[in-house]
Design a protein around this nucleic acid. Structure first.
Lengths: 143, 143
DNA sequence: TTTTTATTTAGAATAATTCTTGATCTAAAC
DNA sequence: GTTTAGATCAAGAATTATTCTAAATAAAAA
């Protein structure tokens, strides 16, 4: 599994903000569902099983707070619902056009993702977002 | 300016579909506003000046048709409105976090954008989407 | 011309997300 | 241990980009 951090490390990243029960549950659900790269609503569905009183708005709030704190990342493709990912290593995402699965794609050892690009000189890149779309191995086989 | 194609070439790409007045206007507006990477609604605003009867739904339809035909590409970042781009060369987009401008970022000569990535073996990539966020040269200076 | 099919229009519908407001909790001050 | 102030949460309303629907129009085929 990809690099994730512990609840305590999340608490640290939150800085002045509190590590509330809700934030803890939301973070743990994102970890639990990491493989499927859950949307806010799948996080909500699962979180409610653990904490029945949690609201969808709170799930959104927590996801935003965790994202801003740098504990998880938000992944978008096209206009679909955002997905969330607890893997903090630099990585890209591969979306299977057929089964809709999302895979983490790691950066090769010592590679620089911006290397092939002619960056505007003098610009500072803070974030790079790489998404690939195609057929995953399984879907390619099962023609 | 980046590589764009002529109306006639768009007509060809449309295949069986017709190059209607509306599609022509929409394509030309996307070309005209290429530098700002217009959203559907900015295309609509400008298109209405040229063809006052055109509707927003038609603008959306045309943008979708042109995208499907491969005459323009749809660019997304975060959850903002989609933007459209007539540059058909492989390129990435740089979004300035301060002034909100969008710049095309070219692929270096003979470079392969997927090179730094550890692709799932056996997968076939059909499309790659690279977005960068940061400060453009202008915004970096004007502290 | 008549028929068929594609396209456009206008407005309703949708879906993800954000906002608003009042209630609740927590931490620190008293 | 209360009180107070600020943070957080819950519920539902509001927003926004986009898609859908159905009727009208335009173009192509017969």
């Amino acid at each position: 599994m990809a690099e994730q951090i512990t609840d305590d490390q999340v608490a640290e990243k939150l800085g002045g903000l509190r590590m509330t029960k809700q934030r803890k549950v939301v973070y743990e659900v994102v970890q639990e569902l990491a493989k499927e790269h859950p949307t806010a609503s799948s996080v909500y569905t699962r979180a409610k099983e653990i904490m029945p009183t949690i609201s969808l708005a709170t799930v959104y709030n927590c996801l935003e707070t965790l994202t801003d704190a740098g504990a998880i990342t938000q992944v978008n493709l096209h206009r679909e619902a955002s997905r969330f990912c607890p893997n903090l290593q630099p990585h890209a995402h591969f979306f299977c056009a057929k089964c809709n699965a999302v895979f983490d794609v790691n950066l090769q050892d010592k590679a620089d993702a911006s290397e092939p690009w002619d960056l505007p000189s003098g610009s500072r890149i803070e974030e790079m977002n790489v998404a690939m779309r195609g057929l995953c191995p399984d879907c390619r086989d099962s023609k």
